[in-house]
């Protein structure tokens, strides 16, 4: 079993299944309406450029934690939604929420580039009170509160390699 990135963060019997990029993409492709949520850690340019590739692949993306400013600088602001993560998670809990497009809630929510402990708690809320949503962490951290999660990755190269693999596999479609 993988160690939670914050080692004491062992929530209970239900903890995320560790997945490879390939397994993540399989789950992603099963989703009817996925949502990618990114946070403040996309200030790191190498990560942000990869997020922008995912946006270019048509994945609905929402910038939280003030990260919108980086997308504005990169000319991507019209392609992303903006929210406070706490508010957004609250909306996601409501099965009848209309979503950013007015067409309804999402069924597969992906976390990337969000402060670890904040993301962990929001994933906990979704795990426990949003049975209509599956969650995935493609962070460099193992997130026990997600349904599926990458392992901890302390080296950028390996982590970016995994994200690149996701981009490539989704792009193959």
């Amino acid at each position: 079993m993988e160690t939670p990135y914050d080692i004491g963060n062992i929530p209970g019997p239900k903890m995320a299944r560790v997945v490879t990029p390939e397994e993540f993409v399989k789950q992603f492709k099963k989703a009817k309406k996925p949502l990618l949520i990114v946070g403040s850690e996309i200030s790191q340019e190498e990560l942000r450029k990869r997020v922008e590739k995912l946006i270019d692949l048509g994945i609905t993306t929402v910038a939280t934690g003030g990260s919108i400013r980086y997308f504005v600088e990169d000319g991507y602001d019209e392609k992303v939604e903006v929210a406070v993560l706490h508010e957004l998670t609250n909306m996601l809990l409501d099965e009848n929420w209309k979503g950013f497009d007015g067409e309804g809630n999402y069924d597969f929510v992906i976390f990337l580039g969000i402060t670890y402990y904040l993301a962990s708690q929001m994933l906990s809320a979704l795990k426990n009170f949003a049975p209509h949503i599956k969650t995935a962490s493609i962070e460099r951290y193992y997130h026990p509160n997600a349904d599926i999660s990458f392992k901890n990755q302390f080296k950028d190269e390996k982590f970016f390699q995994m994200v690149d693999e996701i981009i490539d596999k989704i792009g193959e479609e």
């Binding site: 929530p11 209970g12 019997p13 239900k14 706490h86 998670t89 609250n90 809990l93 708690q121 929001m122 906990s124 809320a125 795990k127 426990n128 009170f129």
Partner: peptide, 9 residues
């Protein structure tokens, strides 16, 4: 109230 449990038990 919006709840984000820290422990599920």
């Amino acid at each position: 109230p919006f709840y984000a449990p820290y422990d599920d038990t």
